[in-house]
Each structure stands twice: as structure tokens, then as C-alpha cells.
Design a protein around this nucleic acid. Structure first.
Length: 650
RNA sequence: GCCCAGGUAGCUCAGUGGUAGAGCGCGUCCUUGGUAAGGACGAGGUCGCGGGUUCAAGCCCCGCCCUGGGCUCCA
């Protein structure tokens, strides 16, 4: 047997006998590093892939060792965790059928088919069994088995779902298995060497999931869990889940009295209470002013439109299942609008347009209703009635890049104003192999995609190109904001539409005197006002910046003896246009502070004898605590500054 | 729509077949207190809705509505 050349990540080259395993090379590394390695990246003959540490290396290759700090390493680790889960379930419930068990962004799951559902107690038992098997340090072993033998094995084990997978996914010759104890899985791998690496794990939930994701297939039970190489990392993760719970907009919406959803009224329909209402008012005001400044025209369109219009737009054909049923009178059917586009198009079409008028930018805070299945509704984030900050730009081809840039610039201004620092941009383009699935001419698509790329490039905005992710009517840019705890939210979108101008036969008269079809860009920045509000609540954990806070300051008289002074202070601030409350309850200062703090009011103004005599207020900030006394006028000026600058820190 | 878990006072939740509970909140009174809960008393319920079983149902059974976690869907 000959030697092969191995290049390590640091560039160091070594010569080792053919058949050497990554695990052998690992022995040369310091123990401290080596014991954290879960998988390797190397070339076994078909390019670099992730490989098991005990896979023999047969040819010259680069070898890279991965820990769970590497996303790929963590993925392999979690995948092996899923196998550990399956192995435990096999021990406890040998009668179940096994489905699939991949890693996910946050952990892993495994799917089982079983008569009885798993209960929370079952999960505890399974966790215990997993710990037992982990402690036995079972190796994850790869083996190749001829197809027929594999099928026979799974038939004997009464695993028809696995047979189905082997039949559908293997090459029909050799089948790759991984074993963890008694558990044998048809699996691409790779896996971590043995179960002992999985120091910390937790099973989180069980949920129904259709076999292969098809509604007509039987429903599997999917057990979700997560795992880490150390307890500290698991604790940290669980802590983050708690943090997300703490910020849950549904919980805060109730506690801060911002909005409600009422069974009496129907699912997915939002009631904006006064404190949520004022925030919405401020959001919308900002938006309207900005729209006008940026050359948009504000329009309003009806909530119900004749059904024929939805036929023309194509919604009846393609979007019917998301539309509330028609209302019929004797002659005509009307339907609640799920989108604003047709309305804006009718305004465009109300007169013959000249190229001199373009671009025409029609904007509306348009309330739409979509019939969503009850199972998908979720607080403010997925609702049945919502208001889009919708606009449609109609323009000529040579205007398009400037218009796209203006849209993206607007979206970024919005993110900044509302306190979001980070964002990701995705460009969704067509799949050239599915030309027939798209509306519009190929040249139009090419031009549009080119315009989007040019705009983003010129603006120096990094973006991810999503091949084949475009919707059928045009390519689009999606902007995902990243909130205070690192979660992405898809809100703003800028989309080309080649479909509706065609369907409605939109035209403008160009300089050459001929009629041309305008380009149409659909854009929403908040996306939906409801959804954006939900994200805003979670981003700030309910502690809104001063300019958005429903109550900006609360005056706290120390006793009833200084109520008059408190009233005077509150009155003066209200007069100056601030949202101020007076806590005139018969309570101790401590109690008033606690309540104001829980309501996340930015400033508490403590007023007692001393303040009354000096004409001051003692300012307490919700975030910084007691700031001491200062003249009322000074505080007022500071408040003014925070509101005017829309400061996100207070 | 499907699977699982829920729905009890304004809120959070306890209550395994025998007279509906707690804390917070709310009201009244006492207290007039200097930076995260002062005290007493009181009001407050169609136990999601409808049917069934039972001498008796918040509790058991069936259907529906709604909420949550997922799946599916997402022009």
C-alpha cells in the first residue's frame, strides 16, 4: 500500500499510508482540541464533503477538522442526536415505525408512526433512555449493505416506511446504513464517532407532521429536541428561548394593553386598543409624511370590489382559497379585497397616461382580508385582516433602476427609524428551466433582474441570490430585518409584476407617440402594519422608544398633599404635546414606581414637597433608575429632543 | 384543514363525579408613605358553546368554536 499526501487546514502537509483515517491524524493534535472534533471535511473522490472520522482516506486530499462551532459540524452533531433519540425510542417502543430524522436550524427531530401519541411523560422517559445510551458511548457505525439485503432487513423489522425510503432514495445497488446500538438507519451521514459527545440535550415538543409532508399521507409524530456538546451551551440556548417568550408580542400585547383578538369577533382579527392605536398612528404618520416627501401620491380604494375584477386580475383563479367568499346581491357578486393592486391599477387606468406623467407612485394604507386556515393564525404575525402599506410604481424601462433604488432606500430608512440596525437582503430570480411557469417575456425578466442587481450593487448592499425563488409574476427583493435578539423577520418587499399590466392592458403614450406597456413595481415596507407592530413589540420587548411610547412620562406625586403640584406638572407637559399620565392613586411611591416600571413607561417624574418648592421634578428612567431632581423645563427640553430625534435609546 | 395540548373571575392559574378557589387587578375605608408591591373589608363566575351519560358534571362521552405548539399552505 502506498502513501498519500494530506494537507491540513493550516497548510501543513503530511504523508501517511493509504487508508489512514481522519481519526488517526487527530491523535497528533493536542488532546484538548482533538476531543472536540466531531467530523472532518475531506475529498474521498467526489470533491470535498463531510466525512466520518473513521472513513479511510485513499487519495491525496485536504483534511479539515470540524467542531460544533462550525455550522456544518453542529449539523452533523444534531443529526447524530436525532439518531440517539431514535435509538432510545426503539428501546422503549419497539413497535413504532421510523420515518426520517434530520437536524434543523435549532436542533433536530425524528418522526415516528405509532398508534398512541407520545405524552410529555413519554418524552421524559425517552430523555432518560437517551442519557443511558449516551453513557454507553455507542459508536455510530457506517456500513454498506446490498439493496436486497437492506430491503429484507427492514421488512423483517416491520419498517415499511424505511423500505419506501430505501426504494426511492438509494441507487438500487448498495445501501448505506448507520447503526447506533440496535438502531439501524438508512442514512447519508456522516455522523459523530459515538454518542458520548452528546453531553447535553433536551426534548422540547411533539407535533404532528405528515409523512413526506403530504396531507394525504398518514400523520407522523415528530419529536423535536435540541442538543449541545456542553450543558452550558444548552442552558444558554434554553435561556434564549425564555428570552423569546419574555418578548412574545401576544403576552406583552395583553400586559401593556396594546391590542386584543377576541373570540366573539373571530379569529385573526385585531382590535387595536388605545395604547396600540397611538403607536399605529405614529407609525402611519411617519410613513405618510415620508411617502409625500418621496413623491408618492396617497390614494384610497374600496374594500369590496366586483367579482369580475378579481377574474380579470387572475386572483379568482390563483388566489381563491385565500379569499373570503363572495357576497351576492341579485345581479352582481362582490368580494372583499385580499390585495390592493387591482384598485391602484384602476386609478392608473382612469385616464390615458403620457410618459411625461411617469413614474406614477400610488400609495395606500390598504386594509385587506385574506382567508387563512385557522391553524396558521398567529397573534399579530399571521392574521386574516390587516393593513398593508402598499404602493405601486408605474414607470418606463429607463426609470426602473432609479425607482428600485428609491424603494430600497426608503425601506432602509424605515428600518433605521424604527430602531433596527441589521438586515439581510434576498434577491429572488426565476429558474430558467421553468420558463413556462412565469408570466411575462424572457427579455423583460432579464431586464428586471438586471435592474435589481444593478440597483443593489450600486447601493453597495450585499444580497443573497435565490435562484428559482421568484414568484411567477416577477423577480423581487426581500429585506429581512434582524431584531434585538438576532431573529430575522421578512417584512419589506419590492416586486416586479409582469402579470397585472398585461391582464389589465395598461398603457402609456411614449415620446414616439406609440402606446407602450408600463413596468409595474409592487412594494410594501412595513409589509403589514399589524405584523410590523408585532415585530416592533418583540424587538423592544415592549419598552418602546420615547417617540413611540404610548405614555412617555408618568407623574408620581408622593402623597395626596402634593397632588396639585403633580397635576400642574402633568398639565404643563400635556399642554406641550407630550403623552403624560398622572398617577393620583392612593398608593405608596414604591407601588407607583413598580407599576410604571411594569408598564415600561420611559420616565417617572417623582413629585414631593421638595420638588414643589423648587419647581423641579425628580426623574427616574425606566432603564437607568433615579436620575435626581432637575427643573421641569430642562426635563421638557430633553423629552422634546428625544421625540424629535426619534432616539431609540432613552 | 390535520395531529397534540389547552379554554375556570379583568389577568395568571389551582381544582379527578357531591355547596366553584387563590394571587394580582377592581371598589370602599384606614394609612400620607421619597425610588420595584402598606393594611382591612368587599364586589366579581352561563367553569368556551351545544348535546349526552349520571341521583349528581368544571371534572366522563360526542360535536362545534377559539387559543397554543407543529404539519400543510403562503400571489
Amino acid at each position: 500500500m502506498g502513501n498519500i499526501n494530506i494537507t491540513l487546514k493550516d497548510g501543513k502537509a503530511v504523508q501517511v499510508p493509504q487508508g489512514t483515517k481522519p481519526a488517526d491524524l487527530l491523535k497528533k493534535l493536542p488532546q484538548k482540541i482533538a476531543k472536540r472534533i466531531v467530523v472532518a471535511r475531506a475529498d474521498l473522490g467526489k470533491g470535498e464533503t463531510l466525512v466520518d472520522l473513521d472513513r479511510p482516506l485513499e487519495r491525496d486530499t485536504r483534511v479539515e477538522f470540524l467542531t460544533t462551532d462550525d455550522p456544518d459540524g453542529l449539523f452533523v452533531f444534531r443529526h447524530s442526536s436525532a439518531h440517539l433519540l431514535a435509538a432510545a425510542v426503539l428501546e422503549l417502543y419497539p413497535e413504532v415505525q421510523f420515518g426520517v430524522g434530520p437536524p434543523t436550524d435549532q436542533g433536530f427531530f425524528y418522526e415516528f408512526l405509532r398508534e398512541k401519541p407520545f405524552t410529555p411523560e413519554d418524552l421524559e422517559k425517552i430523555e432518560k433512555k437517551m442519557a443511558e445510551l449516551r453513557n454507553q458511548n455507542l459508536p455510530n457505525q457506517r456500513k454498506l449493505v446490498p439493496f436486497d439485503q437492506a430491503m429484507k432487513l427492514y421488512q423483517e423489522q416491520k419498517q415499511p416506511l424505511k423500505c419506501e425510503l430505501v426504494r426511492d432514495l438509494s441507487d438500487g445497488k448498495m445501501v448505506q446504513f448507520y447503526t447506533t446500538g440496535k438502531f439501524i438507519d438508512f442514512c447519508l451521514g456522516p455522523h459523530i464517532p459515538s454518542t458520548k459527545f452528546i453531553k447535553a440535550f433536551k426534548l422540547l415538543s411533539v407535533a404532528g407532521a405528515y409523512w413526506k409532508g403530504e396531507e394525504s399521507n398518514p400523520q407522523m409524530q415528530r419529536i423535536y429536541g435540541t442538543s449541545f456538546p456542553s450543558q452550558a451551551e444548552l442552558d444558554d440556548h434554553l435561556h434564549k428561548l425564555e428570552e423569546a417568550k419574555r418578548r412574545d408580542h401576544r403576552k406583552l400585547g395583553k400586559e401593556l394593553n396594546l391590542f386584543s383578538i377576541q373570540e366573539e369577533a373571530g379569529a385573526g382579527l385585531i382590535f387595536w386598543h388605545p395604547k396600540g392605536g397611538i403607536i399605529r398612528h405614529l407609525m402611519e404618520n411617519w410613513l405618510r409624511e415620508e411617502l409625500l416627501r418621496r413623491g408618492y401620491d396617497l390614494v384610497y380604494t374600496p374594500h369590496v370590489l366586483r367579482q369580475d375584477l378579481w377574474k380579470t386580475s387572475g386572483h379568482l383563479d390563483y388566489y381563491r382559497e385565500n379569499m373570503f367568499p363572495a357576497m351576492e346581491d341579485e345581479h352582481v357578486a362582490y368580494q372583499l379585497k385580499p390585495m390592493n393592486c387591482p384598485g391602484h391599477i384602476l386609478i392608473y387606468k382612469s385616464s390615458l397616461r403620457s410618459y411625461r406623467e411617469l413614474p406614477i407612485r400610488l400609495a395606500e394604507l390598504g386594509t385587506v382580508y385574506r382567508w387563512e386556515r385557522t391553524g396558521v393564525l398567529h397573534g399579530l404575525l399571521r392574521v386574516r385582516g390587516f393593513t398593508q402599506d402598499d404602493a405601486h410604481v408605474f414607470c418606463t424601462p429607463d426609470q426602473i433602476e432609479a425607482e428600485i433604488e428609491a424603494c430600497v432606500d426608503f425601506a432602509l430608512a424605515l428600518l433605521k427609524t424604527f430602531g433596527f440596525q441589521d438586515y439581510e437582503v434576498e434577491l429572488s430570480v426565476r429558474d430558467p428551466n421553468r420558463a413556462a411557469d412565469y408570466a411575462g417575456k424572457v427579455e423583460d425578466w432579464e431586464q428586471a433582474e438586471g435592474a435589481l442587481v444593478n440597483s443593489l450593487t450600486r447601493m453597495n448592499i450585499p444580497f443573497k441570490r435565490m435562484e428559482g425563488e421568484a414568484v411567477f409574476y416577477g423577480p423581487k427583493i426581500d429585506i429581512k430585518l434582524i431584531d434585538a435578539i438576532g431573529r430575522p423577520w421578512q417584512l419589506s418587499t419590492v416586486q416586479f409584476d409582469f402579470n397585472l399590466p398585461e391582464r389589465f392592458k395598461l398603457e402609456y403614450v411614449a415620446a414616439d407617440g406609440a402606446r407602450h406597456r408600463p413596468l409595474m413595481v409592487h412594494r410594501a415596507l412595513f409589509g403589514s402594519v399589524e405584523r410590523f407592530f408585532g415585530v416592533l413589540i418583540e424587538h423592544y420587548a415592549g419598552a418602546f422608544p420615547v417617540w413611540l411610547a404610548p405614555v412617555q412620562a408618568i407623574v408620581l406625586p408622593i402623597s395626596e398633599k402634593v397632588l396639585d403640584y403633580g397635576e400642574k406638572v402633568a398639565g404643563q407637559l400635556k399642554q406641550a404635546g407630550f403623552r403624560v399620565q398622572l398617577d393620583d392613586r392612593n398608593e405608596k411611591l414604591q407601588a407607583k414606581i413598580r407599576d410604571a416600571q411594569l408598564q415600561k413607561i420611559p420616565f417617572m417624574l417623582v413629585c414631593g414637597k421638595k420638588e414643589e418648592e423648587a419647581g423641579t421634578v425628580s426623574v427616574r428612567s425606566r432603564s437607568k433608575g433615579d436620575l435626581g431632581p432637575r427643573p421641569l423645563a430642562d426635563f421638557q427640553a430633553e423629552l422634546q429632543r428625544l421625540v424629535e430625534t426619534k432616539a431609540t435609546q432613552a
